[in-house]
Design a protein around this nucleic acid. Sequence first.
DNA 1: GATCATTTGCGAACGGTTCGCATCTTGGAT
DNA 2: ATCCAAGATGCGAACCGTTCGCAAATGATC
Lengths: 137, 137
Amino acid sequence: MASVESFIAECRIKGIKLTGQRRVIAQVMVEGQGHPNAEQIHADAAHQHDRISLATVYRTLRVLRDAGMVIEHAFPDGRCHYELAGRPHHDHLIDKESGAIVEFCDPEIERLQQAIALRLGYRLTGHRLELYGVRAR
Amino acid sequence: MASVESFIAECRIKGIKLTGQRRVIAQVMVEGQGHPNAEQIHADAAHQHDRISLATVYRTLRVLRDAGMVIEHAFPDGRCHYELAGRPHHDHLIDKESGAIVEFCDPEIERLQQAIALRLGYRLTGHRLELYGVRAR
DNA sequence: GATCATTTGCGAACGGTTCGCATCTTGGAT
DNA sequence: ATCCAAGATGCGAACCGTTCGCAAATGATC
Ligand SMILES: [Mn+2]
Ligand SMILES: [Mn+2]
Ligand SMILES: [Zn+2]
Ligand SMILES: [Zn+2]
């Protein structure tokens, strides 16, 4: 999802009604980076639109999540964090000291998860893998 | 942790003051099985002790968690689930249909996680791995 | 531009967990 | 066994992130 325009276009295709607030949230998600929580997204959005509530941010994120355009992560800080969907799959390493979030993808681990589920008699439908660590020095 | 007696003994060694309520919670955790949440633990405990509040269950679980005697899991149902510590490390597969929780441990995945963290410049301090799936048929 | 379904802001409600406080219990000292 | 200070308990209220209800505003369709 390179541009706000294509994101907006995808909304239209999926029948998601576009409002001023939603355009701003779309822009924040597309042009921003990292894994912001709702409050941070609201703060960024409020910077460009003086009439936007936290409830609308939550509602819009839910719409986008249900449309598969945004991914929601329940990280261990007790809040939900969001990122654009449509990028290649990856998991996260969280720096316990700085809070920094590092993305990674390991095909071997992905493969092993499938194998483990199968061995246990299950078909894998999803997974959550988070590594916690501190800078090695 | 085979018996309630040894669990209680460990509490004493660690300077955890023992009360009627704590003994009952200890028994529920040692003799019960699975990954109960606080409400379920409270229900089980209330069965053996007619004066025990949910707040005390939470407080006791926190004490036991901080003492390393109980592990707390934030599963995606939005509640914390608890299990006895001291058993070999394992991760969990959650049946999305029945809610059943299957334990597994894969040394290869454990090793890969260390390797990935290292490759990213981190020393691994912990991880969370949950697989979600449905019965293969 | 009129219409009507949808969306919005606001503040209240929600649900799991924690807290404050007065009261009770425990474990060590006598 | 009894006393006492330290700590634990029950109760209900508070907390915090998220969701909801509703009246008012807005946007897609005509
Ligand atoms: Mn990511
Ligand atoms: Mn387990
Ligand atoms: Zn993955
Ligand atoms: Zn593991």
